[in-house]
Design a protein around this nucleic acid. Sequence first.
DNA 1: CTATCCACCTGGCGGC
DNA 2: TGCCGCCAGGTGGATA
Length: 275
Amino acid sequence: MPELPEVENVCRGLIPVLKGRMLTDIKQYRENLRYSLPIFFTERLQGRVIENIERRAKYILIHFKDDSNLLVAHLGMSGSFRIETDNFQLKKHDHIVFKTDQGKSISYNDPRRFGFMDIISKENWLSHSFFKQLGPEPFDENFTALHFYEKLKNKKQAIKQVILDQQFIVGVGNIYASESLWQSRIHPLKAGQDLSQLECEKLLMSIREVLEKAIKAGGSTLNDYHRPDGELGCFQHQFKVYAREGLNCLGNCSNYIKKQMLGGRSTFFCELCQV
DNA sequence: CTATCCACCTGGCGGC
DNA sequence: TGCCGCCAGGTGGATA
C-alpha cells in the first residue's frame, strides 16, 4: 500500500492532530510488529510533546520537544493510522494506540505486521541503519537527470527493479514504478545502463509527475488503505497501467496492457508504447 | 559485487 | 458452502 504518496499523506494527516500535542496515554497490544518494539516503548513516549512529523523515503519521523530521541515508523505493506475523536473502539489488528492531551486517539493498525516502529537517537539519525543506505528523495532538486544517468551506468538490472531499489532512489514502489515507466514510454525490462540521457530525463520527470499527482489525489486506495482522517485516496482511478492487465492501453496505440512478473513483483506495461 | 529466491504475515479472491 | 492455492502497496537475509 504505502509508497511515497501514501506515506506523505499519512504524515500530512497526522500533523494537525499530533503537532504540539502531548502523548498522555500509549497502549501497546503486541511485543512486536515486523521487529520487536523497543523496551519501555510506551513509558518512553509517555508525556512527550510532539514537535513535528516528517517523511524520509517511506519512513515517518516523529520529533519531540526537549528529547534526544526520534520515533520512527514504517507502514510496511498494510500499516495505517486511524484518528478517532471520541468513543475509541479497538479494531482487529490495532497494535498501538496513542492518546493525546486533547483526548484524540490515534491507532496504528497493521494486519500483516510488515510495518515497524522504533525509538532512535536523534543525533546522527541519518547514519542509523534505517537511513544510511537510502538514495535521494525524488523531489530533491540536487538530484538531476544527469546524476540519474551516471548512477545507471553500470546497472545491468531491469530499469523497473532499479527504481524500486531504495538505494537508487527512494519512495517509488511497485505501483508508481510501472506508472512512471509507462509515462516515460520506457520498457520496464530495459537494462538500466541502456537508458539514454534523454530517457533518464523523461523517467525522472515522470517519476516526479506521477508521485506529485498521486500525493495530490491523496494516494492510491487498494483494499483498505485510508488516510488517518479516514478519507480514501483516489489516485487508483488515474492508473494508466497498474492492475489494468488486458485492458486497452491509454497511449496512442490499439494495444492492451500486459502483465509480467519481474523479480517476484507484477509489472504492467504496453509492449508497443514502451521501448 | 550482482542476481535470485524467499521469508516475514493476514486476508481476499477465484477455481473447483 | 468450504477448502486450496495464489496474490497483495515493502524490506532484508540467505544463497549461488
